[in-house]
Amino acid sequence: MVRVQKEAFDAGAELNAFTQSHTDMGAVVTFSGHVRDHNHAETVSTLELEHYAGFTESEIRKIETEAHNRWSHIRTLIIHRFGTLKPGEPIVMVAVASAHRKAAFDAATFLMDYLKTDAPFWKKETRGDTAHWIEPRETDRIARQNW
């Protein structure tokens, strides 16, 4: 399941609901990403995430479908936010359930590596009085390429 939303989410509550709805699965791995309060030795006040409504959802669904093609018996939950976020707020959550742990760990890493490079979002971070567009990172590109 893919959700792209402006509203904050409670990663713990989402994890509990996801786990309860997949009682046939013995392993659940989750990742959640949050807004850092500093970057480049400066204090971060806000992080704006811009998306392309409709297209962003469909591209994330493609990533999810690819994970299901690679690990056939997993269940997945992907939540990604847009809008203006403050430090500490959740940005993204990925949860993968599978019969055993390896597929859950691997698929969760795969989903995050792909989301980092292929999910249509543009991030703008405000540090001090200045806003900076976040550039894609080479390490993220390599992580995705290695799959």
Partner: peptide, 25 residues
């Protein structure tokens, strides 16, 4: 809503978007 090549004929397209490199996650 589909990624197209540079030489794609856009004359029938209703919505065309220019996407700079993304920084999701």
């Amino acid at each position: 809503n589909s990624i197209v090549a540079d030489d794609f004929d856009l004359s029938a397209s209703k919505e065309i978007a220019f996407l700079p490199p993304m920084s999701g996650g």
